[in-house]
Structure formats: structure tokens, C-alpha cells
């Protein structure tokens, strides 16, 4: 094990994370800018994520209420992306420390990866729940049941993919068999 290999893993993990992570980054930036009255995003939120009838009945202009929802989504996606990055990097670095001293032993660590990934996914669910269902954010009140389901499903799938691509490229070459489809990755100097 050399530091060079670890840095290489980190770099590859960052590349893997970036493949899809830029979408989350852009989305966070877009939300951070706040609502724009003419934007399709604002309308999409109104049509798909929130209790549009209740909001209309409250008499409040949606654009005014949306400010806090944008804030919620900015913070939530920042936390979700951060935890995906941290989890992918932790696994990528940790994979170099796995005790794999014979062929086929890497597969034994699949269970380790599975538990680690399970914890990561549980964290994703917990974070989404905290933002959308707890009393932490007032804007959570605006979300409809289907809106929460949509946010949860997209977050669950999307951040898993971000994390997975991060660990797929970042896991130590000798430990790739410990992750799902890791052994399908072609062996080359670059990877």
C-alpha cells in the first residue's frame, strides 16, 4: 500500500462522483439563487411537490412562499451531496486497508461494503426525512405527500448512483470484487 495509490483512488473517486454529482451541484446553486417568477422550476415545484390547493387557499403568492422551500432544498441537497462524497471517499481510502492477501478474498469483503452502503442509504433516508417531515423547516409544511415521495425516491436513487460511481472508480484495484459489479471494470493503468 502506497500513498500514491491512495491519492490515485481519491482522484478517481472524485472523478466518479463528478460524473453525476455536477447535476446536484447545479441544482443546489439554482435553488440557492432563489425563486424566479417566470422559471419553469418554480412552476414544476408548484405542480408536483407542494400542496398547491392549500397554498392557493392561503392567499399567499407562491413565489413568496417558495423562498423557504428553495432554501430547504439548497440545504438538503448540499448535505446529501456532501455525505455522498464523504462516504465514497471513506470507502475508497478504506479499501486500501482491507486485508486481501490471496485471490478471491476480496469477495469476502462484499458483506462489509454492503453494510457500509446500507448505513449510507439509511443516512440518506434520515436526512431526507429530517428535512421534509420533521419540524426543522417551516417549508416542509408546503410539501404534499406525493412531493415527499418524489423527493425521497429521487434522492435515494440519485445519491446512491453518485456514491456508487465514486466508489466504483475509487475502490483499490485489488478490492474491486468487494463491491457490486466492481470486477466488471476493465483493468488498465488508468483505472
Amino acid at each position: 500500500m502506497s500513498m500514491k495509490n491512495i491519492f490515485r483512488s481519491v482522484l478517481l473517486s472524485v472523478i466518479g462522483l463528478s460524473l453525476l454529482g455536477w447535476v446536484s451541484f447545479s441544482f443546489t446553486a439554482l435553488n440557492a439563487l432563489g425563486p424566479d417568477g417566470d422559471s419553469n422550476l418554480l412552476q414544476w415545484y408548484f405542480d408536483n411537490l407542494v400542496q398547491s390547493e392549500e397554498i392557493t387557499a392561503s392567499g399567499m403568492p407562491w413565489e413568496d412562499l417558495a423562498v423557504s422551500l428553495y432554501n430547504l432544498l439548497t440545504q438538503m441537497t448540499t448535505v446529501l451531496l456532501s455525505i455522498s462524497v464523504v462516504a465514497a471517499l471513506i470507502w475508497s481510502v478504506a479499501s486500501h486497508f482491507l486485508n486481501i492477501d490471496s485471490p478471491g478474498k476480496a469477495k469476502f469483503y462484499f458483506i462489509y461494503w454492503l453494510i457500509f452502503t446500507g448505513i449510507f442509504m439509511a443516512a440518506i433516508v434520515g436526512i431526507v426525512f429530517w428535512f421534509t417531515k420533521s419540524a426543522a423547516f417551516n417549508a416542509a409544511d408546503y410539501l404534499s405527500g406525493s412531493g415527499v415521495t418524489t423527493i425521497s425516491a429521487i434522492s435515494f436513487i440519485y445519491y446512491f448512483l453518485v456514491y456508487y460511481l465514486g466508489i466504483l472508480l475509487g475502490t483499490a484495484r485489488f478490492a474491486r470484487s468487494s463491491i457490486l459489479f466492481g470486477n466488471k471494470l476493465p483493468a488498465s493503468d488508468l483505472l
Binding site: E54, S58, M60, L65, A135, N138, D141
Partner: peptide, 16 residues
């Protein structure tokens, strides 16, 4: 008068 018996406070938005 049972205020908010029909439209309960739970259904109103916080922060307003």
C-alpha cells in the same frame, strides 16, 4: 367557538 376545529392549525403553514 372551537377555533380551527374544521380547518385545524396542524394543516396551516408554519412561519406565516
Amino acid at each position: 367557538i372551537d377555533l380551527f376545529a374544521i380547518k385545524p392549525l396542524e394543516k396551516l403553514f408554519r412561519g406565516l
